[in-house]
Design a protein around this nucleic acid. Sequence first.
DNA 1: AACGCGTAAACTGTATGCAGATTGCAACGC
DNA 2: GCGTTGCAATCTGCATACAGTTTACGCGTT
Lengths: 225, 225
Amino acid sequence: MKQIRRRQVIRTGTTVEQMVRAIADMIVTGVMHPGERLDELSLAVRFDVSRTPVREALRELGAMGLVDREPNRSAVVANVTEAYLHSMFEAMSELEAICARLGAERMTIDERHALELEHRASARLVHANAQEDYAAHNTEFHTKLYRGAHNDHIYEMVTQTRARLAPFRRAQFRLPGRLAKSYDEHDVIVTSIMRGDSAAASQAAYSHVAIVSDASIVFASDKVG
Amino acid sequence: MKQIRRRQVIRTGTTVEQMVRAIADMIVTGVMHPGERLDELSLAVRFDVSRTPVREALRELGAMGLVDREPNRSAVVANVTEAYLHSMFEAMSELEAICARLGAERMTIDERHALELEHRASARLVHANAQEDYAAHNTEFHTKLYRGAHNDHIYEMVTQTRARLAPFRRAQFRLPGRLAKSYDEHDVIVTSIMRGDSAAASQAAYSHVAIVSDASIVFASDKVG
DNA sequence: AACGCGTAAACTGTATGCAGATTGCAACGC
DNA sequence: GCGTTGCAATCTGCATACAGTTTACGCGTT
């Protein structure tokens, strides 16, 4: 094989890290679907490396829960049971409620303003029914919320859980009227946080995720199982 | 090299899985200390395998957060900052509070009885000041508590967090009077759960971990940093 | 004696080869 | 015609070889 060290122009990190990010991205963004095979040789060819780094990347993705691995079988994009999916959504509700509560107590003035700005910015996207753009703002909004708890470990857990849920939550904004409802729910969270009302923020965040969960499980159900 | 397939008598799983378990165990039980190097070749020799499975095991342990890895550097047993340690303890409080709350609502009669039994069984160990044995019962008690929430993903998160905290929590029961206090705290949790009082159970579990956290950080402080 | 520099040793990153496991297919028997 | 068995192709698991990087040490210079 050639090996002329021309591994594209991705700048950051080691080969394996790059592959982990690339593959995780494909899974999370829905380029690859739950249950799809991740054959080592194909990936090696695709990324122009040998199987060794591919294997390490797959193992790491396995540890993250994004792919399932069994001995002597190809790795496959994680396809969780409906029960486990449900437990992840419930965990998301709990985690997000914690973040909202802690955020209401701990966020700096700047963080609060940034959150509110992010929220307000997405208002016009609701009217335009710009689902893609709204989804991007939505992600950023939630990231700011999670950061606001000022707890790195909780941030790690909630981020990882969110990533694992992503493949099953893709279509949520296609439900008619969901965009507007989502915006309203965010509004309650933001308002509560601005007031420093941790109980209300927590409650609002919990229900918000619970609703997203319901919306998503409908769409997931034809993939899971 | 020989390769006479005599890799000890550990029965389950692939080579890498066995190594992950073995190394994780050494870290969690304190045989290896935070900051200690995990050189690939030494481990390979020790386990009588080549470096390839060792590397995969280390990568998995890295993903779990039990070891730290940097490019072109040996993996080392994870040594977290005091800030991150604090965030993990806080997360533990929150997670355990959730488990207690959900447990108070969801545990079956059998689960409640088993939890109470486990708790009562450790009473005599308190009087004997049998720290080792109490620690074992303590682990089992908390596992039952986590299971009681009937949420697999939360169980996964809390278990993983607990494992990462283990190296920094080892000495907690050596504080004078800690055993008795721990028992009393458990008692409040158990009683609340038996009554189905989720708010009280949640509150009790939260404070319990917060106290353990304080007790542990004292001991951790000469290791961390 | 202290500091820099260069080289070698030690170690990680990656490629490749081989052995064992699995799967699909085809030929055969019922 | 359908199920079963055996073989071949494919793929994973692990070992080994090699390349690139970091670290440590010793030598020479000041």
